[in-house]
Computed example of a mutant assay.
Amino acid sequence: MPKKNYFVVSNPQGGWSVKSGGSQRASANTSTQKEAIEIGKRLATNNSSELTIQGKNGQFREKNSYGNDPHPPKG
């Protein structure tokens, strides 16, 4: 079973949403980006997946792996 990746995106009705990849419905809706990121981190950690965060300008600004990172840092 492929792992679900999660995305924090701006919500057209205002606020922020946490969505899983390929899903139309949001896993969570919040009023602040900070709350959405916290929920997204929890979901991604529980599912050993990735979290991608959209900035206020619409560009994706950050991506984090929680679990089996295919490219772990050396050292």
Rank of each mutant, 00 (worst) to 15 (best):
Y6A: 01
G15D: 07
S65W: 10
W16V: 04
A26E: 05
N5Y: 01
F7N: 06
K3R: 15
A36N: 07
P12V: 10
S23K: 14
V18L: 05
S27Q: 11
I37G: 06
Q13T: 12
G67M: 04
F7V: 02
D69W: 02
P70V: 07
R25A: 09
S10G: 13
G67P: 00
G22Y: 02
F7A: 07
R25N: 04
P73A: 07
G67A: 09
N64E: 11
L43D: 09
G75K: 15
V9R: 14
G58D: 04
K41E: 15
K3F: 11
G75W: 08
S48V: 01
R42P: 03
I53G: 01
T52W: 03
E50Q: 15
Q59Y: 08
K3C: 11
Q59G: 03
V9E: 13
E62M: 04
Q13W: 05
G14I: 04
T30Y: 01
F7G: 02
S10R: 15
E38T: 11
Q59A: 14
N64T: 11
P12L: 08
Y6L: 01
Y66K: 00
T30C: 10
N68M: 09
W16H: 04
N11K: 11
Q13M: 12
N29L: 12
P12Q: 10
A44E: 06
G55A: 09
R25V: 00
S27C: 06
P70W: 05
T45V: 06
S48A: 14
Q54L: 02
E50A: 15
N46A: 15
A26G: 01
K4T: 14
